[in-house]
């Protein structure tokens, strides 16, 4: 049974990762990160059900909490960047130039 949940979380994680790599818009990248985090959350919950160990559910809750915080900070950074650089494209914001 667990198999389906694992595949689901894998698909979600991959989608998130591809989003992070491919997209240039910082907000979308943040959404991708959120995808990845939630996929991990799903994995935790499903395993918690599977093993009857409720700690996994706690961890999932913690992950959600952290995701919320991260999103708040991330978005504010994006806003700040927009103010400074006038853009939210990751390619425009390159301080480590070649």
């Amino acid at each position: 049974m667990i198999y389906h949940y694992v595949v689901l979380s894998l698909i979600l994680f991959s989608l998130g990762l591809i989003t992070v790599i491919v997209r240039r818009n910082l907000i979308v990248i943040l959404i991708g990160i959120e995808f990845m985090l939630n996929s991990v959350g799903i994995l935790f919950v499903s395993y918690a059900r599977f093993y009857n160990n409720y700690i996994g559910e706690f961890v999932a809750l913690v992950i959600m909490l952290i995701a919320a915080c991260e999103m708040a900070i991330g978005l504010s950074i994006v806003v700040a960047m927009f103010r400074i650089y006038g853009s939210v494209k990751s390619n425009d914001i390159r301080e480590l130039k070649n």
């Binding site: 790599i21 990248i29 990751s90 390619n91 390159r94 301080e95 480590l96 130039k97 070649n98």
Partner: peptide
């Protein structure tokens, strides 16, 4: 080593 660190986010992640 600088060629690996050129500031493109996707390259870094890759």
């Amino acid at each position: 080593l600088r060629f690996f660190q050129n500031g493109y986010l996707y390259k870094i992640i890759c």
